[in-house]
Computed example of a mutant assay.
Amino acid sequence: MIVITAPTGNIGHQVVDHVLAAGEPVRVIARDPARLPADVRERVEVVQGSHGDARVVAQAFDGADAVFWLLPSDPRAADVDESFVGFTRPAAEAMRGLGVERVVDVSALGRGTPQAGRAGHVTASLAMDDLIAGTGVAFRALTAAGFMDNVLRQLRTIKEQGLFFDVIPPDRELRVVATRDIAAVAARLLLDTTWTGQEEIPLLGPENLSYNDIAAVISDVLGTSVQYEQIPAQALTERLTARGMSGAMVQSMLDMLAAKESGLDDAIVRTPRHVIDTPTTFRQWCEEVLKPAVHATGRQP
């Protein structure tokens, strides 16, 4: 039995699809089972509730061979460490107590770098990994670069204004990875019963891109001018606060972005193995994901 958390999320639903396609029995934890596609609900066992709830994970992990652990975003959390480590603690206890054999989670790059100790969400994510590893379970932490799919959060401004925004300098190259590649690696590990031990699997994407590079690719694929605009941290703070994000989580986000700008994600040298694991280029992602999303929301920008 393979247990998948966050099965309706951007990564989780893709993991579910991969594992079901392989014919393996799947159990999912879902707050709202109605959000699962009807064909998926018919093929999985559903445990309703939050995977931060001790009773829910105890039920879901009973008899599980492998678990896919994906932390849900909580932008209103009062404390970033509690939102990562505190949320995960009941699951870690259930993993240990119920004899779960293998766990795969989605985490972040940066362990061992000077920036890792003050990198907001990333620092908390690495502490979450340590908690899971401390159970003694066979463990693979998928330490991912920034998601290409985050561009979709600014679909409206791209569509209506030909702009997207962040605080990172426009010429600072970053690693970016498609969530579909993350899901494919996760599913492969969940389906493989042979691995043991504990290890981080860096997911870097096939190329480094600056925001100017990203804007140029988007413009070319959409056939219209799209530009990147760097905004000050205060402007981002105001935007995130207006959306309901707590002060603690806003600061955590700013700390993470500052750490990325100063080299948090750069320590690992990309190898051919990394490209094989995460082959989707940003241009390919734009053609196959972003462009259809723009069309689906009406006229192109």
Rank of each mutant, 00 (worst) to 15 (best):
A6I: 08
A6F: 04
A21P: 04
A22M: 01
G23A: 14
R27W: 07
E42G: 15
E42F: 00
E42A: 15
E42H: 04
E45P: 01
E45Y: 05
G49N: 08
G52E: 08
D53W: 07
Q59V: 14
A60S: 04
A64G: 06
F68K: 02
F68M: 03
F68E: 02
W69S: 04
S73A: 12
R76Y: 10
A78C: 08
V80F: 10
F84N: 11
G86T: 02
A91K: 01
M95L: 15
G97Y: 01
L98C: 10
E101P: 05
V104H: 04
V104Q: 01
G110H: 05
R111V: 00
R111P: 00
G112Y: 03
T113E: 03
Q115H: 08
G117M: 08
R118V: 13
H121P: 02
H121A: 06
V122D: 07
T123E: 06
S125G: 15
S125P: 03
A127Y: 02
D130C: 01
D130L: 02
L131T: 06
L131E: 05
I132D: 05
V137A: 01
V137R: 00
F139H: 04
A145C: 08
L155M: 08
R156Q: 15
K159F: 00
K159C: 08
I168Y: 11
R172E: 13
E173D: 12
R175C: 08
A178S: 12
A178N: 06
R180T: 13
I182Q: 07
A186T: 03
L189K: 04
L190C: 05
L190A: 00
E200A: 14
I201A: 01
P202V: 06
E207L: 04
L209V: 11
S210A: 13
S219V: 09
G223K: 05
T224A: 15
T224R: 13
Q227G: 14
Y228S: 11
I231W: 07
E238Q: 14
G247I: 06
A248I: 05
D255S: 10
D255H: 10
K260A: 12
D266Q: 15
V269I: 04
R273Q: 13
V275Q: 10
V275A: 09
P279F: 07
P279E: 11
Q284L: 07
Q284G: 00
E287Q: 15
A293D: 02
P301H: 09
P301G: 14
